[in-house]
Amino acid sequence: MAIGSGLGAQLSIGAESTYGTYAAPSKHLEFNKADLKLAKTTAQSAGIAAGRFLALSSRRVVTQRQASGSVELEVTNKGMGLLLQALMGTTVTPVQQGAGPAYLQTHTLADSFGKSLVMQLGIPLTTGAVTDKTFLGCKVISAEFSCEVGGMLVATFEIDSKDCDETQTLVAASYSNMAPYHFGQMALKTGVFASEAARDGIRKVSVKFERPQAVERFYAGQAGLKKEPIANDQVKITGSIEMDYVDTIFDDLHTSDAATSLVWEFVGPNIASTYFETFRVKLPAIRFDDAPPTVEGFDVVKPTLSFTGLYDGTNQPAIEYISTDITL
C-alpha cells in the first residue's frame, strides 16, 4: 500500500507504436509536478416539454474528449531519451561509445509526427490506494530547460494528449540509480559552430523549444477523439542568459545583431574511458533580441539577454545525451 499523499505518486512513460494506442510504460521517472488532466466537451439537450423546469440528466452527452497538461522534472543522467525523442522528432538509437558502457543519443530537430507517448500517472487516495490515470497519444508541444546558480537542471514538458484511460493496470514503478544534472556541471559556449569557446560570468540559462501543432483534429467517425496532431507552424526556439557583466561579447552581439553558435552543456561523472555523463543543447545560430546592460544601483551589473534560435542553413539544432541507457 502506498502513502496516501503525493509521496505515493508515480509517473511512468512508454513509446506508442500507434498514436493513442496503449503500450505498457517502460520508464519510471522521478518528477516534481504533473498536472495532466482530462478535458471533456459536453452538450445538453434542452427541448421544451410542458411542465419541465430542468433539462433531463439523461440527455446530456459527451461529444469530445482530450487531455493536456505539463510535467516538471529534474533532468537526470538516465531515462530521459523518450521525452527528448518526442520533443525533437528524430528516431534515435543509442550509439555505444568505445568499448565501455557509455551510449550517445543525438536528438536532432525533425518532424515529430509519429512520436507519441503513453504517460501513466499514479495518484494516491488518502487510503493509500493508487488510482490510475493513463494518458494516451501524448505529444510534446514544448519543453523548457533551465538552470541557475546553486540549482538543478529542470525541464518542463507541455503535453497534448488524445485521451485518458482509467481502465489500465498501474505498472509497478522501479527506479534506477539516477542523478540530476546541476549548476556545478554547467558550461555555456558561443562562437563559430564546432569551435565554440566557454563564456565567463554566466549565472542562469534557459532554453525553450516550441513545437506548434494542430491539436484540434476532431473528425466524424473518431468517437469524439482527435487524430494525431500535425505540425502547423515553424519551430520556435527562444532562451535567455543571465550573467555578470564581465565582458562585452554578448553586448556586442546584441548591438551588431550578428549570429553565433551556442552550446549549453552539463558534464557529469566519467562513465568509461574518455566518455562522461552529458546533457548538451546545440543551437548552431542564435541572435540576441534584448537587453543591453543597464545600471540599477551599486551592485554588479547583471544583464539578462534574451535570444532566438534560428537555422544557419546547414546544421540543425540538437540535444546530445550520453548515459548508460542502452535503449531509450
Rank of each mutant, 00 (worst) to 15 (best):
residue 300 V to W: 12
residue 264 W to T: 05
residue 84 L to M: 13
residue 75 V to F: 01
residue 243 M to G: 06
residue 326 I to F: 11
residue 268 G to Y: 02
residue 284 P to E: 08
residue 305 L to F: 13
residue 286 I to E: 12
residue 88 M to Y: 03
residue 42 T to D: 08
residue 94 P to W: 14
residue 16 E to K: 10
residue 61 V to W: 07
residue 324 T to D: 13
residue 52 R to G: 05
residue 48 I to A: 14
residue 7 L to R: 14
residue 87 L to Y: 13
residue 115 K to M: 07
residue 146 S to C: 08
residue 50 A to Y: 12
residue 177 N to S: 13
residue 190 T to P: 09
residue 202 I to P: 02
residue 41 T to N: 05
residue 128 G to D: 05
residue 168 Q to F: 07
residue 26 S to R: 07
residue 102 A to G: 09
residue 43 A to S: 15
residue 66 Q to L: 10
residue 154 V to H: 13
residue 31 F to H: 06
residue 275 Y to Q: 14
residue 152 M to T: 13
residue 259 A to C: 01
residue 239 G to P: 01
residue 111 D to C: 12
residue 35 D to G: 11
residue 83 L to H: 06
residue 296 E to L: 09
residue 98 G to P: 02
residue 217 R to L: 10
residue 121 L to M: 10
residue 73 L to F: 04
residue 161 S to E: 05
residue 278 T to P: 13
residue 263 V to Q: 13
residue 128 G to I: 02
residue 58 S to H: 08
residue 181 Y to H: 11
residue 106 T to H: 03
residue 64 Q to W: 03
residue 192 V to I: 04
residue 86 A to W: 08
residue 12 S to N: 10
residue 42 T to H: 04
residue 202 I to Y: 03
residue 298 F to C: 11
residue 104 L to T: 10
residue 284 P to N: 00
residue 138 C to W: 10
residue 180 P to F: 14
residue 214 A to T: 11
residue 33 K to W: 00
residue 295 V to D: 05
residue 118 V to T: 15
residue 159 I to V: 01
residue 244 D to M: 10
residue 317 P to E: 03
residue 102 A to I: 08
residue 299 D to Y: 04
residue 65 R to E: 14
residue 21 T to R: 03
residue 107 H to M: 00
residue 312 D to G: 06
residue 231 A to S: 12
residue 290 D to G: 13
residue 60 R to Y: 00
residue 129 A to N: 01
residue 194 A to W: 04
residue 229 P to A: 14
residue 105 Q to V: 07
residue 104 L to I: 06
residue 88 M to E: 05
residue 292 P to G: 05
residue 296 E to P: 02
residue 58 S to D: 14
residue 74 E to K: 10
residue 197 A to V: 15
residue 182 H to V: 13
residue 149 V to A: 10
residue 285 A to E: 09
residue 122 G to F: 07
residue 283 L to T: 04
residue 244 D to C: 05
residue 294 T to E: 09
residue 254 H to T: 05
residue 176 S to H: 08
residue 279 F to P: 07
residue 294 T to Q: 05
residue 278 T to R: 15
residue 248 T to H: 07
residue 163 D to R: 02
residue 252 D to K: 04
residue 148 E to C: 09
residue 239 G to I: 11
residue 270 N to V: 09
residue 81 G to H: 00
residue 256 S to E: 00
residue 247 D to E: 10
residue 33 K to Y: 03
residue 321 Y to D: 08
residue 213 Q to R: 08
residue 175 Y to W: 10
residue 123 I to H: 11
residue 270 N to Q: 15
residue 272 A to K: 06
residue 249 I to T: 08
residue 123 I to S: 05
residue 165 D to F: 04
residue 73 L to S: 00
residue 117 L to D: 11
residue 109 L to K: 09
residue 135 F to N: 09
residue 195 S to L: 01
residue 68 S to V: 00
residue 221 G to A: 03
residue 253 L to R: 06
residue 208 K to E: 15
residue 214 A to M: 02
residue 155 A to L: 03
residue 12 S to H: 03
residue 53 F to Q: 15
residue 69 G to W: 00
residue 141 I to M: 07
residue 321 Y to A: 11
residue 311 Y to S: 04
residue 159 I to N: 09
residue 214 A to V: 01
residue 302 K to I: 05
residue 28 H to Y: 01
residue 244 D to A: 10
residue 36 L to M: 08
residue 225 L to R: 00
residue 307 F to N: 00
residue 320 E to K: 06
residue 217 R to T: 04
residue 210 E to T: 15
residue 104 L to W: 06
residue 267 V to D: 14
residue 320 E to A: 07
residue 54 L to M: 12
residue 261 S to P: 09
residue 274 T to P: 03
